[in-house]
């Protein structure tokens, strides 16, 4: 029972990341009609926003280590601590949440630059061309990051106070054997908040309504005298922010390296297809569903019955869904069927 509960949490957690990535992917796909293979790379860029924040905040100076008296020893002390003492250490400790402050504007800029500089020339090109050009872009982004930050994963720890585990068993009355890392709970909450924010933006603001209308029928909205193109550019920026936050917040869970985007991209494409191309609700639902399924498949009891199932479960589900429900769980008719 406890184990199952934990697996569900694990799955929701992983699913949160999938859902966020898939949400961005679907936003871009639904509005612009572009299959963006560079989306995983943007996720990775988000994670490297956190790495950059860490680098910036811990910019250090060599000072003499007063603790060692036998000889002249030096240690690196971040400027922030030299200037602001305790406050400085506090800021450094909270680098991951702070990195969002950096991630949002940076990701917005990257998103806008990508859309204006490249993607918009591909609206009317075949999907194969879109896949290929964004695939090329993904390689370029990833290699640039590699040449700057190197090939090894860079650990970015969560703030000290939430680095431990939460004893959620006691909180929920399940006994004290159920513990779960705080940061993963925070990530799940963060994912839910971002998803809710995106949905309310689309549902409750007039701006979002126009975007949704545009997703349904682009031409008509254009005929109404609304500059739908402009809004779609903004949506691309929004999608980049969403996936950027997903990446930045994920760093304490998985130390980022340059190819983490590719690993997540393939999975999130599967998520989008399972959810149904162009369906935002489907993307979120499928993200969480596949996350949970994956963590259940990773249980030893399951692996004992179906060896290797944890490695393929997501793809297997995708194949089954695509064959039985061609449009995915919640796909709309006519999307991508030409």
């Amino acid at each position: 029972m406890d184990a199952i509960f934990l697996q569900i949490l694990n799955g929701l957690d992983k699913g949160g990341a999938y859902a966020l990535i898939a949400l961005g992917l679907t936003l871009v796909f639904g509005t612009l009609g572009v299959v963006n293979f560079a989306h995983g790379a943007v996720f990775m860029l988000g994670a490297f926003c956190a790495v950059t924040t860490q680098h910036l905040l811990t910019f250090s100076k060599k000072v003499k280590d007063e603790g060692i008296t036998f000889f002249d020893a030096y240690k690196e002390v971040p400027y922030l601590e030299i200037w602001w003492g305790e406050t400085g250490s506090f800021i450094i400790d909270y680098k991951v949440p702070f990195s969002i402050l950096l991630a949002v504007p940076v990701m917005l800029l990257i998103g806008l630059a990508m859309e204006r500089g490249l993607i918009r020339f591909f609206y009317n090109r075949p999907h194969a061309d879109q896949i290929l050009v964004t695939f090329g872009l993904a390689i370029v982004i990833q290699e640039i990051v590699k040449s700057i930050y190197g090939a090894n994963p860079i650990p970015v720890p969560a703030p000290e106070i939430v680095s431990g585990s939460a004893n959620i068993g006691i909180l929920l009355g399940l006994g004290d054997s159920v513990v779960y890392p705080w940061w993963r709970l925070i990530y799940l909450a963060n994912a839910l908040v971002v998803i809710a924010a995106v949905f309310s933006f689309l549902k409750f603001t007039t701006y979002g309504m126009v975007v949704r209308a545009g997703m349904q029928d682009r031409e008509t909205v254009g005929l109404l005298g609304i500059n739908i193109q402009h809004r779609f550019t903004v949506v691309f920026g929004l999608a980049s922010i969403v996936v950027g936050i997903a990446g930045a917040m994920y760093t304490p869970i998985l130390s980022p390296d340059y190819h983490m985007g590719m690993d997540f991209l393939v999975l999130s494409f599967v998520v989008v297809v399972v959810g149904g191309m162009g369906s935002l609700e489907g993307a979120v639902l499928a993200g969480f569903m596949l996350g949970v399924l994956q963590s259940f498949a990773a249980m030893n009891e399951v692996k004992a019955v179906f060896p290797g199932i944890d490695q393929i479960i997501v793809y297997l589900v995708a194949v089954i869904i695509l064959l039985t429900r061609p449009r995915g769980l919640m796909g709309r008719k006519g999307v991508m069927e030409d």
Binding site: I131, V273, I312, Y315, V319, L322, L323, E337
Partner: peptide
């Protein structure tokens, strides 16, 4: 299996099979 769908769905299906084969080659196989 993959040819039951066309367009991007076909691409994703082949990708899914490729990833499955790759993962299995590294683990149970």
């Amino acid at each position: 299996v993959s040819l039951r769908r066309s367009g991007i769905y076909f691409s994703i299906l082949t990708l899914a099979f490729a990833q499955m084969s790759y993962n299995l080659a590294y683990s149970v196989l």
